[in-house]
Write a protein that binds this DNA or RNA. Sequence first.
DNA 1: CCGCTGTTTCGATAAGCTATAGAAAGTCTC
DNA 2: GAGACTTTCTATAGCTTATCGAAACAGCGG
Lengths: 234, 234
Amino acid sequence: MGSAKTVGATAGRPRLSGSAGGSPRQEIIREATALFIAKGYAETTMSEIARSAGLRQSSVYYWFARKEHILQALLEENRGSLQVARALEPASEPAAARLYAVLHADAVQLCASPLDFYEFERVARSQPQNFGAFFEDYSELHRLASSIIQQGIDSGELRAVDPEAAATAALSLNEGLQRHYRQPLPGLRTYTADDVSTLSADTTLASLLRVPGKLPGVRTQAAALAAVNSPAES
Amino acid sequence: MGSAKTVGATAGRPRLSGSAGGSPRQEIIREATALFIAKGYAETTMSEIARSAGLRQSSVYYWFARKEHILQALLEENRGSLQVARALEPASEPAAARLYAVLHADAVQLCASPLDFYEFERVARSQPQNFGAFFEDYSELHRLASSIIQQGIDSGELRAVDPEAAATAALSLNEGLQRHYRQPLPGLRTYTADDVSTLSADTTLASLLRVPGKLPGVRTQAAALAAVNSPAES
DNA sequence: CCGCTGTTTCGATAAGCTATAGAAAGTCTC
DNA sequence: GAGACTTTCTATAGCTTATCGAAACAGCGG
């Protein structure tokens, strides 16, 4: 099933609609991604994906045995915010700035992702055996964020809160706010990806900093950290 | 279609499974609610609802022409957190305590609701003409929260942030955290409804208070306010 | 040149879903 | 007891995801 050497174009029965460009697998992922962005995962049918990729509905199943597998493949191409957290958790800069940088990067990634976080989570939950990586990544991010918060408490930068609960709240805020970027509710202001990322990190840090007045400085430090530890140059 | 006087039990063709107890409409809503809580909206089929209510699948459509109408009816029975906001927005108590009370009440309601907020929103968005009330309620809650925040800024209790953005962040945090109460992610701690409500309101107020040390006092004041303005005694 | 094997696509179809249409089986009113 | 009204039923259309086996090609050995 789908051994798919990187053959140019020739093999197997030809398509009714002229043959494709690149590898069918990538083609399907690309078209599916565009449709997911436009309509969401649940509202996109395999027939639409097939039509966009120039295939018949059932032919898509040769490359992806289940609809969720397309999502899974898409996920594997979209890692990134964990790298920032992994790089910054053991670093020696002030914990507040590192936490800000991690949260901001996570929010940016949530906004840039082709799929709403909650839609992702819904599918992942229905297929836990295939989406183990999703939960592992989330749990690792949570652990790293908790650790940075603990460091900040120890150093006196942050208030003495429960680090685990604070990390949960911080990530929840990221997730909740990405929704407002992605699908603005009628009657409410619309936000850019950077708006919500800054709003989220600002809010969390303001709630944790022992001296709230230090927020602007933290923000500046975090921007410098992000420039160095961005996943682009890994 | 479904004029449904509150007749005792007699009218129309009898059911194959012995006749029902109360009004079929209420019966369907009750069984559907239980199923939605157990499995979520999308994963609950009309056949299951019908079976639980002692009807055939198509008979449910006599009472609810579309599946979403069941959800809509369910929504109309579950108002409440808006009442707290309406009562407290014009009140004269300190704004910080009123904001805390509103946010806490909203979070409690999100946790107690039979349906995940995001699942609700998804359906509401697909049927805007039927769920106008949902968006109106949300927008009113947002407006009231913004107003209380503005009052707090004016009185000097709260930092000088953008009230609209702060309200969006506060409600987003409520929504994001209800998810962690409702569907704990594997490997993470589980929270009670009161845990997440307190965590959410604490976090937001900590991020907004000019003097973070006042948080315990605000929390106490808010509890007193909630006791007086709870929707139960309206 | 011809059949064999492997690869990819196709058409047909099963099973489950929401929703509709019309017949059927009662009660109620006169 | 006839006709109207209410409620439930059976049957079915049209959509979805997913499976199955046949069809159409390339490349290879004889």
